[in-house]
């Protein structure tokens, strides 16, 4: 059974329909072709599928697709600036070596986005706390934490 959905995806309104048992990650990847959101476990354990729903970081592999009705969803594809440029946060990941294989990166970056929206000046511990649900097998997390600190500093110096 399908139901109709209206929600805002990466800033643009969208109307679609989705089977009631689909997860948000299926809607994004399979129906809307937004493959930037990754699947690492499908059990809420790895954070690769993290997206923002009304500003909150959620695991889209556990989030029922019908529940985004009326909400604002941001995926990694929606973070960049106009003219095909990376956002400051994404650029900081590139500049500080926060990316290796890149499979965890979209989820890491969105967890970081949720944190910085709430807390523009997080401490190291607060950053680590916010990334607690995001697994990375490549980096040992050191340069990821650096990336987020750099992003926070750059974003703060802009305003």
């Amino acid at each position: 059974m399908k139901i109709d959905l209206s929600f805002t995806l990466n800033g643009s309104p969208i109307n679609t329909s989705v089977a009631v048992d689909r997860r948000l990650v299926d809607l994004l990847r399979d129906e809307l072709d937004l493959t930037g959101t990754k699947i690492g476990c499908e059990e809420g354990e790895c954070g690769a599928c993290t997206v923002l729903v009304d500003g909150q970081a959620v695991n889209s592999c556990l989030f029922p697709a019908p529940e985004v009705d009326g909400k604002h969803v941001i995926t990694i594809e929606g973070l960049g600036e106009s003219d095909n440029r990376l956002s400051e946060l994404q650029q900081a990941f590139v500049d500080q070596g926060g990316i290796q294989c890149g499979f965890c990166s979209p989820g890491m970056i969105l967890s970081a986005r949720a944190l910085l929206n709430e807390n523009p000046n997080p401490s190291q511990d607060e950053i680590r706390e916010a990334l607690g649900g995001n697994l990375c097998r490549c980096t040992g997390y050191v340069q990821i934490v650096d990336s987020i600190q750099t992003a926070a500093a750059r974003e703060n110096s802009d305003d």
Binding site: L34, G36, T37, L86, Q91, V94, G97, C101
Partner: peptide, 19 residues
């Protein structure tokens, strides 16, 4: 030096077998 494959990965635009 930042890695050349970094920007696409940061944008969710690197294509893995899953994609």
């Amino acid at each position: 030096t930042p890695r050349p494959d970094g920007p696409d990965k940061a944008a969710g635009r690197a294509h893995y077998i899953h994609d």
